[in-house]
Design a protein around this nucleic acid. Structure first.
Lengths: 201, 201, 201, 201
DNA sequence: AATGAATGAGATTTCATTCAT
DNA sequence: AATGAATGAAATCTCATTCAT
């Protein structure tokens, strides 16, 4: 085979992107390392030059997915809106990222992607929870929110949100209702009075 | 090997119980069919008399786990208590079943048990949701509860509850707080005014 | 592939014999499990039905080789000859088994057979040393042999014998001389006076 | 990485020493070329500037180990002592070099070092045998030693000596006995009458 | 109903060596 | 002289399932 030397950064990215697209199509378990390397015409060994195992690239893929979401959430948190609006935007941002045509939800809930599911959930929580915690905390101080156990309550709310995302297969109407329910729940859990959440899936 | 003929029902149960115990110890993925049959000294082929695949016995295990919980919930639903009390009991019943020493939670959240997780969640929802739905619905009629989308809201609440169960490893204090948060959330989601939930993990 | 069911004992032997012959031809390291199974037209899995690893069959091969030698030595030890004659026969038996056309020496000293070398040496010592020890001990009691440290001395002598076997590649004359040297050494080490050892390679 | 140019001789030595230390720790087979180069922070390609293969550096390591021993032996041979004393010193020199904390014996008898074992034995024999042969020969002429096949006998004796070294892990008493046995054997094999060997491990 | 020998596709990983830079 | 990205062949082992008995 012709040997093509590339900037390592570039090669690495190439591998991650290829892996992601294959995990999306066939699922992690059903994607062989050989599928990945064949697709970009590099040797099998090249893969192991960059990742020490198949699970290793899975983590890289999970990070690649979560990074822009975390970035988004971070930006929202930095903004000047009031806390309820921020929470609303954050939830929408997550729902949107998850449910778009190539969103992480489709990826997560596929037969061969159980492990990816785990890694994603973990990464999401690790990167996003702390940011939200701050928003909530500020909202509490300002009297916007009213919860006895803000941190815990929000984790539970977030899990509901992610759970909702699961159900991207539902028919339109069902999703609408689910979404509306989540709006109500969010308001109630946060103890918000004069704010109406608007979520979209 | 000496060939021991047993009552088919008995053999089947024996296989399911063995499978369950192995899934508990090592996880579904890491349990080979050969592990199961070796443990009760039957031939490999025997397994395939009773189950058409490995996934098949997984479903049987999931059902075996869910059945008594559903039974419990059904009994609570039949009782004479008011609706809020019933919901309270139901949630506790689920939490308890999930968190006991050999409860389904430990099983669900183990590395090789992703598929089992799925099947359990599915089975739980299939068997339990309708019963709860009725309780909720009655509570709504009686003015006990107040939600715009009772069914959807409760599913989300239930998912939070299960999610909470996840975290049975936390230290005592953390779990106490989590539990208290769930009590508050439950009340708020259901739109209950004059009832204080008491959950236990 | 047509499935041919055989008596397990037979299949196992078939595998061991095939493995031995391949190790002899190409060396252990250069023999793939797939080579073995292909040669007798069974599935790859069949191999792992009988041996839990490639190293496992290596041990079986080593045992198969050592067993008849140990048997021989045991029979010699049981005989009615005087101790010196027994020792002479034992050494010859080992030399002969090692140096015959398909003897273990050729097997041992081949590039890909280092591990087999080890296993063989180990097995030889484990099975044969105790028998010899007894012969020596009896010879000491009868005044045939005369050594201050019989056990230790004989181990050293045996190692020389095996070492000698190494050199099956030498030309005829060199081997003759080596053999004659060993005869003298044996007599001296054992402290034998009126016996002339006759070794053959 | 910063590129550091060194005196080729120095670089070569650095590589050999690193290889030796790794072979000592992990064994030749389990030491990757990449382990060696990583340890001294040079590129993978640099290795192949100095050695044409992995086996090539193995030989260099073997030579490095054997050289000082041969030097020692050569010096002893040059001395004015009588032949028996010289043999005694030579054997001790070899035993000492082999059994010191980082001696070649530990190296030789390690799982991944079969090939090194071979190379060492070969090198030892090539460099040391001729020197000893001369000492022996002189001793024969002077009537000190008495053997029918001096060269062959001594090789066998040497192999026993090395074999003994093998067992440097034995407990103190066992080694004492082994050593004493070797003293007796040496005297007998050489046909020495009025000399008592004193070996130390 | 029961057995257990047989199957075989396929996946991950290693690493000595090469070569474009 | 030095680099280190790239290569790729090859090998072991797993295990759900089948099927001759």
């Amino acid at each position: 085979m012709v040997r093509i030397v590339k900037n390592p950064e570039e090669r690495r990215t190439e591998l991650i992107e290829t892996a992601e697209s294959l995990f999306f199509q066939k699922g992690y378990e059903y994607t062989a390392v050989s599928d990945i390397v064949k697709k970009i015409n590099v040797g099998q060994g090249t893969f192991y030059h960059y990742f020490k195992s198949k699970e290793d690239i899975l983590e890289a893929v999970a990070e690649k997915i979560v990074a822009p979401i975390a970035e988004d959430v971070r930006n929202i948190a930095k903004g000047n809106e009031d806390s309820a609006t921020k929470v609303n935007s954050i939830l929408n941002s997550i729902l949107k990222a998850g449910n778009s045509e190539t969103g992480f939800m489709k990826l997560m809930h596929q037969k061969g992607n159980y492990l990816l599911h785990d890694k994603l959930e973990e990464a999401l929580k690790a990167k996003i929870s702390p940011i939200i915690a701050e928003v909530i905390s500020k909202g509490m101080d300002e009297g916007f929110f009213n919860m006895s156990y803000p941190k815990e309550s929000f984790i539970l709310l977030l899990s509901s949100t992610l759970y909702l995302s699961h159900h991207f297969t539902w028919d339109h109407e069902a999703r609408e209702r689910m979404c509306a329910a989540l709006e109500e729940i969010t308001a109630r859990v946060l103890g918000v009075k004069d704010y109406r959440f608007h979520l979209e899936i």
